[in-house]
Design a protein around this nucleic acid. Structure first.
Lengths: 333, 333
DNA sequence: ATGAAAGCGCTAACAC
DNA sequence: GTGTTAGCGCTTTCAT
């Protein structure tokens, strides 16, 4: 059996509370005894049992992360940031895949709470008041990574999606494009709530371009969806450019365009959103809005840790900088 | 505060041991009392505290997963399989990113043990006796997903890498290629241990093709590495085909070939290994060896659960079927 | 079949 | 500054 606080106390000739005090630095301990205890800890290789600790403190060094799709590229990079910064603060990641289903998400919130996690990072395509209520009730520090989190009274991290989409659309217009299709995921939010759609729409309006509903399509977050929706568009007309609200979807759309015998960007320009690793790997490399994905993960866990430690957090909603990255998938018309 | 076993016992007018018995089905309880307890549990919404449980049983419903790189495509798909099957058996995933560094890996093994995880799934590019010893000492159920795990006395899941590489090489030869470059990651294993290299070498020898060390290159698992190594090759000579030992590396190589003004597959054929999502998304889509990645994750966690439950496991090393998928990146010469 | 009680390893009053 | 002790919520002997 592994060594316990009792063993250490006995060997050091002190009480277990003293040992507890030195490992937690919770109360003053005379220097001599501290040394003695320390050396016994070293000798024996004692490691406090986190489970026993959690039982009494009702806290653990675990942070629950609920994501809608582990195999999604965006999520993978996000997890990277969360894990890496979490490690710095000695928090581990309890990973939950909700498949974007609200019942699963709600179930996990309870599960995580019972596991005594110290906080929850909630990544969701489309968030609702239900989520907020469930987590509020849990009374745990929580941060949301979600495009529409700013509509709720929660802590969140994101970018300014509306302005980013506006700029991207404007960029396309400046490149001479007029018929700009918009392919989005309805899983992520309703189109009326969609910041990215608002940005797109505003940019068109500000440039006196009529919105054409025939080239605005909704699907899900997969490349297959991008392919399918692009096909629907091409069956009706050939737009100048396509703005897809995620890189994965954009690449599905490009594949469709290519398969139909058109060239990208020569015949149709395509832009994405996110700047996942794939965007620069794919050929033609994808012009896109670079979200600081890793940083979004990093910042969100940093916020959680602050909340756990009772530190003040300035703003509920943190907006990180984005960037328009020009690559090969857009051509001046 | 949330409801405890004590509350349930009181409300049901029984002792806490009885409640424990009904929730764990550990000992016979009269039908009448069982009903009574059950209904109180339902009313109160009681959920056993897993932390308290772990403290006494020294087990948790947590399975530690140590991976070398969360943002790697292959790992993402693997995690998917692990999570999904884990959920069926009510195990959650404690995710650890080791960056492939052995000290990190060793540290995590101890951490996980102290967290009372029920088992560990160890994904590693290159495994060593050190890992095995560390985990053996931990005395926990464990399964390895690693290309060279079969060299060790551990439970593992993989595919028959040597035969797969042999077949892929043979396929390339049958397509008329003679100068077949080989790009691999030395991070994954030493070349002398590499099953994939053995398969490649054997196939060349069996077909009386001289091995050309100038077109055999070693780097890491990234696309950047593939790009760089391909560039080194092209600076010396132009091979007929390239066999990269991972899709990500293969795509880096293709990008280099494209940037140098050659065409794939017209000038140079390229094949990969893994069949990550990217392989079919990329254009030209990649001919590759399809590893059943999701299943590898699924099978490994299934093994762990069996071990936890004390069930017998037939074979230490499970080999899953692979498949050669022909796509667009190879052309008959 | 059921209950009483010990104890898992730890923290945190509370006493001295 | 240090020790004693009561729990945290649960499982598991040991009686009955």
């Amino acid at each position: 059996m592994s060594v316990t606080i009792k063993d250490v106390a006995k060997r050091a000739g002190v009480s277990i509370s003293t040992v507890s005090r030195v490992i937690n630095n919770s109360k003053p301990v005379s220097n001599e005894i501290r040394q003695r205890v320390m050396s016994v800890i070293k000798e024996t290789g004692y490691v406090p049992n986190p489970v026993a600790r959690s039982l009494v403190t009702k806290k653990s060094q675990l942070i629950g992360v609920i994501v809608p799709d582990i195999s999604n590229f965006f999520i993978g990079e996000l997890l990277n940031g969360i894990e890496e910064v979490g490690k710095i603060y000695e928090y581990d990641i309890l990973l939950c895949n909700s498949y974007g289903e609200i019942e699963e998400e709600l179930k996990y919130i309870n599960l995580l709470k019972s596991k005594q996690v110290a906080g929850i990072i909630f990544v969701t395509w489309k968030m609702s008041q239900e989520h907020v209520d469930a987590i509020k009730e849990g009374n745990l520090p929580s941060v949301y990574i979600s495009k529409n989190a700013h509509n709720f009274d929660v802590y969140s991290v994101s970018i300014d999606n509306k302005t980013a989409a506006y700029e991207m659309t404007k960029y396309l217009i400046e490149k001479g494009h007029r018929q700009i299709g918009f392919i989005r995921s309805s899983i992520e939010d309703d189109i009326i709530d969609s910041e990215r759609f608002k940005g797109y729409k505003d940019a068109l309006e500000d440039n006196n371009i009529q919105i054409d509903n025939e080239i605005i399509k909704e699907g899900d977050t997969t490349s297959e969806s991008g392919y399918y929706l692009m096909n629907e568009i091409l069956n009706i007309k050939k737009p100048d450019a396509i703005f897809a609200t995620s890189d994965e979807v954009a690449i599905g759309a490009i594949n469709c365009i290519l398969d139909k015998g058109y060239k990208v960007p020569d015949d149709i320009s395509v832009v994405g959103f996110d700047d996942i690793k794939l965007a620069s790997l794919y050929r033609p490399s994808l012009t896109t809005v670079k979200q600081p994905i890793y940083d979004m993960g990093a910042v969100s866990i940093r916020m959680i840790v602050k909340m756990i430690d009772g530190e003040e957090i300035e703003d509920k909603h943190t907006y990180l900088p984005y960037e328009l990255v020009e690559r090969q998938s857009v051509k001046k018309r």
